[in-house]
């Protein structure tokens, strides 16, 4: 068997090994690389930065544990920014598996910047049927969320006294791994004129660009790279910044494998044509 044939039929375990090494080495031998802050990420930062102290931000933790490595560092960076600007935060989720994620992220934020639950932030927990929930918030937030995560009546929470619906919310930030950004745009943005920012997984970024360019999103934080950019803006060395090295090496490894696969394919095709001519 020739070298090209062997490379064409390479055992997939060697490919797995290449990826494993590419991901692991940066953790063992860390190095620093510059992170360029893209405009969509800066737009989210600038919007939050311009909000007056005490403005209300609704943060949707709409992702499952599978996408936590990408979206959890992003959540922490965004929350850190909100608390550094002294904004009031309402947390909620439309994913049943994310109820604990939102609670954990808000607690972590509260510990790092001395935020008090029910005074500076409220966690409403999970509600099913996200279209109905988003539309319900537009009428009265106490309709879909009569109680918070710990079953305390929302109408009795001091922070919620003057917050009735989207008119009292300066920005909705959807941190999601599914189709919640599009739903926020359709149900909260189009109907109630709500400003929306999205933080999403890397694979979702391309699908959200039309909304970004149309002005239906104030900004977009895409994937672990977006999270690292946001960490840079809020001067935080979090897991996204640390994970950038591993993701960089994995991307390089995949590019190398794709190019190698194509070179081998073209050589074998050239050889096959030559054989036919002979």
């Amino acid at each position: 068997m020739s070298l090209t044939e062997r490379l064409l039929n390479i055992d997939r375990r060697y490919i797995y090994l290449v990826i494993a090494v590419a991901v692991l080495v940066p953790f063992i031998l860390p190095f620093h690389m510059p992170v360029y802050v893209s405009q969509p990420v800066r737009s989210v930062y600038d919007f939050i930065e311009a909000l007056p102290e005490g403005s209300v931000v609704l943060v949707g933790f709409n992702y499952s544990p599978s996408t936590m490595p990408e979206l959890y560092p992003m959540s922490l960076a965004v929350l850190k920014h909100c608390c550094s600007r002294k904004l009031k935060i309402i947390g909620m989720t439309l994913y049943s598996s994310a109820a604990t994620i939102g609670d954990t992220a808000l607690k972590e934020m509260a510990e790092s910047c001395s935020y008090q639950e029910l005074q500076d932030y409220v966690y409403l927990g999970y509600k099913p049927n996200f279209e109905a929930t988003m539309l319900g918030i537009g009428e009265d937030i106490a309709d879909p969320f009569p109680t918070d995560y710990m079953n305390r009546p929302v109408t009795e929470i001091s922070m919620m006294k003057n917050i009735k619906n989207y008119r009292d919310i300066a920005l909705v930030i959807d941190l999601g791994s599914g189709n919640t950004p599009e739903a926020w745009i359709a149900y909260a943005g189009s109907r109630y004129g709500q400003k929306i920012a999205s933080g999403c997984t890397g694979v979702m970024v391309s699908g959200l660009y039309p909304y970004l360019k149309a002005g239906q999103l104030v900004g977009l934080i895409g994937g672990l790279k977006g999270a690292a950019e946001y960490e840079k803006l809020v001067k935080l060395t979090g897991k996204a910044t640390l994970g950038m090295n591993a993701q960089s090496m994995a991307h390089l490894a995949i590019i190398f494998l794709v190019l190698l696969g194509n070179v081998v394919y073209l050589i074998s095709r050239h050889k096959a044509r030559k054989k036919v001519k002979v």
Binding site: I10, R12, I15, Y16, V18, I19, A20, V23, A250, A253, I254, L257, V258, L260, G261, N262, Y265, L266
Partner: peptide, 14 residues
Amino acid sequence: AFFMASAAYRAFRA
């Protein structure tokens, strides 16, 4: 990531 790398190597051809 592992499956994608393997699939890209085998199927992502010009």
